[in-house]
Computed example of a mutant assay.
Amino acid sequence: MTSQVMLISPAITAALREARFDDGCGLDPSGARLARSAAGTLPAAERVLVSPTVRCRETAAALGLDALEAPELAALDAGRWRGASLADVSASEPAELARWLGDPEAAPHGGESVRALCDRVGTWLIALAPLSGRTVAVAEPEIVRAAVVRALGAPESAFWRTDVTPLTAVELSGRAGRWNVRVGSPLRGV
């Protein structure tokens, strides 16, 4: 039996535009408009899930999806860096930021490490593998990155080398936990 997972990244927000760690902000007007323009273009799915963040829930709603919130898809916990810009953290804690970006086990911000995030997402993918049919999930970019890393069996260092643009789909398909990856398909209508 083949399992299919379509991961959709959220539409643009002020935090994404300003290179800030997510602070719970919603979609900006252009992001909401683009997501609405893609409504009705997604394939049918047996399961529709959404990350519990505001921007993912708003993206799912704008896409016309009736999605179930999945705590496993929660955003990476950035600890005390939540809401801060990358430039601010780089200026105030350069060594800690460098350590976090270079060591997948580091969490100098007091939140979650990249390895812990990849492990969490990997466990979620293992649970999906035996399910037949398609799962569509609107998930944070870091969730999509972690899924690609785990699906490919890549080292966690590949996490930072994976770009996920707003309102794109990454598709995983496979059997018995062996995944194939199709990356970066823009949603039709966008």
Results as ranks from 00 to 15, higher is better:
1 M>H: 14
2 T>E: 14
4 Q>S: 15
10 P>K: 00
10 P>N: 07
12 I>M: 13
12 I>C: 07
17 R>K: 12
19 A>M: 13
21 F>N: 04
21 F>R: 05
23 D>R: 13
24 G>M: 05
24 G>W: 03
24 G>Q: 05
29 P>S: 09
29 P>D: 10
29 P>M: 10
30 S>H: 14
32 A>G: 12
35 A>Q: 00
38 A>Y: 00
40 G>R: 09
40 G>I: 12
43 P>T: 07
44 A>G: 15
44 A>M: 11
45 A>E: 05
45 A>T: 04
48 V>A: 08
51 S>W: 02
53 T>A: 13
53 T>E: 13
53 T>H: 06
54 V>P: 05
55 R>E: 08
55 R>N: 07
56 C>F: 02
56 C>M: 03
60 A>L: 04
72 E>G: 12
75 A>F: 01
75 A>D: 15
80 R>S: 14
81 W>I: 12
81 W>G: 12
82 R>M: 11
82 R>A: 14
83 G>F: 02
84 A>S: 14
87 A>H: 11
89 V>S: 05
90 S>N: 12
94 P>Y: 04
94 P>Q: 09
95 A>R: 15
95 A>F: 08
96 E>W: 11
97 L>N: 10
99 R>I: 06
100 W>L: 06
102 G>H: 06
103 D>C: 09
103 D>R: 10
107 A>E: 03
111 G>S: 07
111 G>W: 04
113 S>N: 05
113 S>V: 04
113 S>T: 05
115 R>E: 11
116 A>N: 08
117 L>T: 07
120 R>W: 10
122 G>R: 09
124 W>M: 14
129 A>D: 06
130 P>T: 12
132 S>Y: 10
133 G>F: 12
133 G>E: 06
133 G>I: 10
134 R>A: 11
137 A>G: 05
138 V>D: 00
138 V>H: 00
140 E>C: 08
141 P>H: 00
141 P>K: 03
143 I>W: 00
143 I>Q: 03
144 V>H: 00
147 A>Y: 01
149 V>N: 04
149 V>A: 07
149 V>P: 04
152 L>A: 11
155 P>L: 11
156 E>Y: 11
158 A>P: 02
161 R>A: 14
163 D>Q: 13
164 V>D: 00
168 T>R: 03
168 T>C: 01
171 E>H: 09
172 L>G: 02
176 A>K: 12
178 R>M: 13
180 N>H: 14
181 V>D: 00
181 V>S: 01
185 S>Y: 03
185 S>V: 10
186 P>K: 06
188 R>L: 14
